[in-house]
Write a protein that binds this DNA or RNA. Structure first.
Lengths: 198, 198
DNA sequence: AAATAAATTTAACACTGTTAATTTTTTTAA
DNA sequence: TTAAAAAAATTAACAGTGTTAAATTTATTT
């Protein structure tokens, strides 16, 4: 009976969609078993027939958001720019995604993750999301011998720390207060990492 | 009647002490109006006679922890080291403090702060805690003309982003998994920022 | 010692996540 | 097509959360 499984997947989709809408619209503080159930159109315990618990549902949202973020960054290929330049503009797109969806940033980097269990892979996927999303571009750079593999790894790590730090202070602590200044300093810091000589 | 005020301060102290013990021992997830009240020796609503709400109490803890962190970093002056070297070892002390008290890191950088109001100064104190705690050392460096003011500010900001990023991934996402590796890469990254030529 | 003020506690409310029992709906078998 | 079995969904309930209002106890003044 694959019909049954299809049905189950559809209903899970209703919950995931409802949860994503609440997360993007009102934030994780408004996401409760009751609120998501109501939006999905079910009573407040039916959800336990389809998800282990609320965290389980949230994990599906995280995977969806990761894909959205990746598409947002890699979607519009800027055409004929050089390697590091296109990487930089992609990093700025990555930053813009989380500025547009601060709840997703919270979900990825702030939210305390309990019940790791079988979700460790997803955790790693999102903590390394910047690296993962740009992996092809970095590989290409190495293949064209524009950078050495070891240097790429160092730069990847440095970018992860700095970009996450930038977003943490801007989204979570409103530092700096102005969007324009934030984007300016963000670009400066990224520049300093990927163009270390200048 | 200053006697009355003294009494009030003492009782507030009981609550703050109880809250700090819970935060350090069991983490913020275990800090509730009921748990802190029980440890302070009062019924579960007496707290509202001394604090606006639970967040108000937490803010007093934050200020205490900030002072503790500052003392931990500046307490043991390493004697006759040169400017940047002593700054680096102090930054490593700063990191060690939060590794020892991960709940304090959460309180400082992770916890969503509602009801800003009159607490904005405290927020700024802790988001700029690394800069604030080392300010004298930086000033001395400028006074001795070992660094220019503008460069100091750039390095301060870079350190803030990197150190917070490092702690976020290590404490919150267990990346890297090993303490030794974490401290090694932390020192590397700090080195790269404060000794940019090498 | 009696009246007043202050401090503390109990009761209650509206939330939260989650489990167990019950009811409704859907599927299978005759 | 109707009866039995299985599945799905719902209601009730529990233990927890923060917070307010009313009741009670304690302390201070007259």
């Amino acid at each position: 009976m694959k019909n049954k499984e299809l049905k189950e997947q559809r209903i899970k989709g209703y919950y995931i969609q409802a949860a994503k809408e609440i997360l993007v619209g009102e934030g994780i503080k408004s996401l409760s078993v009751r609120s998501v159930s109501e939006r999905a159109g079910y009573s407040y315990t039916t959800i336990y027939n389809y998800f282990e618990d609320l965290n389980d549902l949230i994990f599906y949202c995280v995977q969806d958001f990761y894909q959205e973020c990746s598409d947002f960054v890699n979607g519009e290929s800027k055409g004929t720019e050089s390697g590091l330049t296109i990487i930089e503009s992609k990093i700025m797109q990555y930053i813009k995604y989380f500025v547009n969806y601060p709840s997703v940033f919270e979900l990825f980097f702030i939210e305390r993750v309990v019940n790791f269990g079988n979700k460790i892979q997803t955790i790693e996927l999102i903590t390394d999301s910047l690296k993962n999303i740009l992996q092809k571009d970095w590989d290409q750079l190495v293949a064209q011998k524009e950078m050495r593999q070891a240097d790429v790894m160092k730069v990847q790590h440095r970018l992860q720390l700095t970009v996450t730090g930038l977003l943490l202070f801007y989204i979570h602590r409103r530092t700096p207060a102005e969007y324009g200044e934030f984007m300016r300093t963000a670009k400066q810091e990224i520049d300093a990492i990927i163009f270390p000589e200048s």
